[in-house]
Design a protein around this nucleic acid. Structure first.
Length: 574
DNA sequence: GCCGTTTTCGGCCCGACTGTTTTCAGTCG
């Protein structure tokens, strides 16, 4: 059982308590669930250490239940709740506009116990006429059920960003707004996005709403008011837009960026200072006088905090750090001077070495790693030792042709075989500038075996970077079982870097693991894993993830100059 | 159920939009 299972359990308890009309407890269970889910350590380890109560939001009662579940696999408290509430009611909560209150009424007055029965009742017009239910509510519920069943998974950060940027550009050009920004989880750079939030600062908000909801990318208008609207795009992507006057821009952007938990925490700080924070500004509670609001910096300053970058706003310790002035100066994209990981037409890439290099030069990079696959990855046209020898020459030639404008590191993404050995003979590895080694097979190994395998590769002395360290594909494949603490300890010892693979459905290391790497004093190397020149742009996803992982320029090898990175890598060869 | 730079008890963020209301509750973010 992993952290997600435990979180799911606690969330179910919260839902069931909601459905019993219990106040406050559901919020507490959800907070604990979220913090357990976001933890980097397996919850079972925390239980073993007896450290559950150190998790924010976990007190005696929840700790006892989690312990019981982890140790016995059972939780009688949940069983009891399940027996008290019709099980199908929980799925009703997923329908937009149906919350616990409505679900309770539907069940109590109409005997509805699941989604199917709700659909039938709505279709047969049995809802209208009941107190609080009219014709429109009935229609909306039906629509909501259809939407729920058609709705896809969460979007990847790398898919959502270009869509949101397109909308921003459109509004900038067509609605001549004064200020506009992406907000929400997208601005915070979360790896997956539920919907797209956009904030507009304009002294005529109603006009912006008309412009927004009236335009061709909108398929359905879900809601439209003078300052706030929601629409659906094709494929069911929801976009929420909010407009405020420019004087409230900072407060609104702060509010609209979230996270929800970060906002609750900042508003609480306000309350403690006799202030009230909302999207219009920060106000003295008694006099109503406005203290701040035009910029985010101003709002944070007035709360006694240094500015907190959006990627850090997860209520993960950033508020305490900001109060004590010890927030890290997180990585900036402008500090990136190279890319460690890409493929060419020598294996399964789409472009030549020269093309990749030229695009890198146009990004002002000082180095790139040419790292095609190794021989055992036949499906991807992995290079034989012979071919790799030839490629080393080709890389040198391409570098010369560019007249020293960029360093091309001849490298490989070598397979880590099941026994922990690398997929090329050592003399060949020794002649390469850069060795990334990755697991591409036998993903389902037991945890201790997988850990041993990867640690053995790290300790071989022939690798520089551990490629996509957990092997996950967001939304498609779980990370393989591995003891990240042990891997990081070995990496620290051997001075091997962890890759932050910034391919859009990898982002591996994930943000939390970046923090662990930093704590273990292990460097991070961002690699796009590009198979095409355009995919070198995935670098920004890596930078965002590194920022979410609290990494600073000095924690990331990509900030080294071309000259220094060559020196660094040469110094590692046995 | 959790939590504490006024608290170990008594609070628990704040406002827009909608539908069905003659003044507001519920939901959402």
């Amino acid at each position: 059982m992993d952290n997600r299972d435990v979180a799911q359990l606690l969330n179910e308890i919260a839902d069931l308590l909601d459905l019993q009309g219990v106040a406050f407890k559901p919020v507490a269970y959800r907070r604990a669930a979220r913090n357990i889910e976001d933890m980097d350590q397996p919850v079972a380890d925390v239980v073993a250490k007896g450290a559950l109560r150190d998790i924010p939001g976990v007190g005696d009662a929840i700790a006892k239940k989690v312990e019981e579940y982890v140790q016995t696999g059972k939780l009688p408290y949940l069983e009891k709740l399940r027996s008290e509430v019709p099980l199908g009611l929980i799925e009703l909560l997923k329908v937009p506009d149906i919350g616990p209150k409505t679900a309770i009424v539907l069940n109590r007055d109409l005997g509805i116990t699941n989604l199917q029965e709700l659909r039938e009742a709505a279709e047969n017009h049995r809802l209208r006429g009941h107190k609080g239910f009219g014709e429109k509510t009935e229609e909306k519920i039906l629509q909501g059920i259809n939407m729920l069943q058609a709705k896809g998974e969460r979007m990847l950060l790398g898919d959502a960003l270009p869509i949101a940027e397109g909308i921003v550009e459109y509004l900038r050009a067509n609605a001549s707004v004064e200020k506009i920004s992406i907000g929400g989880s997208l601005r915070r750079g979360k790896e997956t996005i539920g919907d797209i939030d956009i904030l507009v600062g304009d002294n005529n908000p109603a006009r912006v709403m008309d412009s927004f909801t009236g335009h061709p990318f909108v398929q359905t208008v879900l809601m439209k008011g003078p300052t706030k609207s929601s629409v659906l795009l094709q494929k069911g992507i929801q976009v929420d837009i909010r407009a405020v006057e420019t004087g409230s821009w900072g407060a609104a952007l702060q509010y609209f960026t979230g996270s929800k938990e970060h906002n609750v925490a900042t508003r609480k700080i306000g309350v403690d200072m006799g202030l009230k924070l909302n999207e219009y500004g920060l106000f003295e509670r008694d006099s109503g006088r406005k203290v701040a609001g035009a910029t985010e910096e101003e709002v944070y300053r007035a709360l006694g905090l240094t500015y907190i970058e959006p990627e850090l706003r997860e209520d993960g310790g950033e508020i305490e750090a900001a109060r004590e002035g010890r927030l890290p100066r997180i990585l900036e994209h402008s500090s990136i001077r190279g890319d460690f990981h890409m493929h060419t037409d020598w294996s399964d890439g789409g472009n030549r070495i020269e093309d990749m290099a030229a695009r890198a030069v146009s990004k002002n990079y000082e180095f790139i790693g040419i790292t095609d696959h190794s021989q055992s990855l036949k499906i991807a046209g992995g290079l034989t030792p012979d071919r790799l020898r030839k490629q080393i020459d080709a890389v040198r030639k391409a570098e010369d042709a560019l007249g020293g404008r960029i360093r091309l590191l001849s490298g490989t993404e070598a397979d880590i075989k099941a026994d922990g050995s690398l997929d090329f003979p050592r003399p060949l590895l020794k002649d390469l500038d850069l060795v990334i080694a990755s697991v591409h097979s036998r993903f389902k190994m037991p945890k201790d075996e997988m850990t041993k395998r990867v640690v053995a590769a790290i300790e071989s002395g022939y690798m520089d970077i551990l490629g996509h360290p957990t092997g996950r594909l967001i939304g498609r494949r779980n990370p393989y079982e591995i003891d990240m603490e042990k891997v990081l300890d070995a990496a620290a010892e051997s001075r091997v870097a962890m890759e932050l693979n910034s391919w859009k459905d990898r982002l591996d290391l994930a943000d939390g693991h970046c923090r662990m790497a930093k704590a273990a004093r292990v460097k991070v190397a961002i690699g796009t894993d590009a198979h095409h020149v355009d995919e070198l742009d995935f670098m920004r996803l890596g930078v965002i993830t590194a920022r979410r992982g609290w990494l600073e320029a000095g924690d990331v090898l990509n900030t080294m100059s071309g000259k220094d990175i060559v020196k660094h890598l040469r110094g590692r060869r046995p």
